[in-house]
């Protein structure tokens, strides 16, 4: 099977003040289509940096990043924006919904970048909201929804343009246990029923148990790669 994501000898360093900080040291990684990968590790281990590289939000200092057949480490900022719009769905820890827009308008935001007609956009928004079980709250603004509901809207926004890859940064980090379980069940359903490839950064071992593969990072190095039977 052709890998969906391939990282070859990827390093990433930042300059903070006068100091150069190397966050990732020569990472090699492949992710197959349909995998649900949990990236774990202590704070500062480089999880989010790795996620940002896979999602095309950041560029490696050295090495190659190949996602969905594209060498994204070679794309310009503008091309990378287009690429993200086509291939990546994002789910953040703090939902990051636009507070002035209703749930349906938030879900529609990625579709505004497409050439779809208004009616088609509406139809897809409706489907996405139904999929996350929030069709009846479509007209509500984020501050009228609970944390779990807001994260569901964020998931609907992430899947509405049918991306190749879903990236989640601590998706349950701001939720109570019950809401966290609901969100993880939803992500699992998207992975199993809709064959969505998911890369998820988490601190939470319980959340990681939902993933089919668990990858540990420590001080910028991959230390443990565990696959679970489906």
């Amino acid at each position: 099977m052709t890998a969906l994501v391939t990282l070859r000898n990827v390093t990433k360093s930042y300059v903070r003040g006068k100091q150069k900080v190397e966050v990732l040291h020569g990472i090699d990684l492949t992710i197959e289509p349909g995998e649900f990968l949990a990236l774990m590790g202590p704070s500062g281990s480089g999880k989010t940096t790795l996620l940002n590289l896979v999602a095309g939000l950041d560029q490696p200092t050295t090495g190659e990043v190949l996602v969905a057949g594209d060498r994204i480490d070679q794309l310009s900022r503008g091309s990378l924006s287009d690429w993200r719009a086509r291939h990546i769905g994002f789910i953040f820890q703090f939902y990051n919904l636009l507070p002035v827009l209703t749930a349906e308008a938030n879900v529609e935001v990625p579709l505004l970048l497409t050439n779809l007609s208004k009616s088609e956009r509406r139809r897809r928004v409706q489907v996405a909201l139904e999929l996350v079980g929030l069709a009846e709250r479509a007209r509500h603004k984020p501050n009228e929804l609970s944390g779990g509901q807001q994260q569901r809207v964020a998931i609907a926004r992430a899947i509405v343009s049918d991306p190749t890859l879903l990236v989640c940064d601590e998706p349950t980090g701001d939720l109570d246990r019950q809401s966290a379980e609901e969100i993880m069940n939803l992500l699992t359903a998207l992975n199993r029923s809709h064959k969505k490839t998911i890369v998820m950064v988490t601190h939470d071992p319980k959340a990681a148990e939902y993933a089919s593969r668990e990858l540990h990072l420590d001080k910028g190095l991959l230390t443990n790669d565990t696959r679970r039977a489906a």
């Binding site: 924006s81 994002f90 990051n96 990625p110």
Partner: peptide
């Protein structure tokens, strides 16, 4: 919020 828009694919 603007960073989120850029994340979702809105160009500079």
């Amino acid at each position: 919020e603007l960073a989120v828009l850029k994340t979702l694919g809105y160009s500079d």
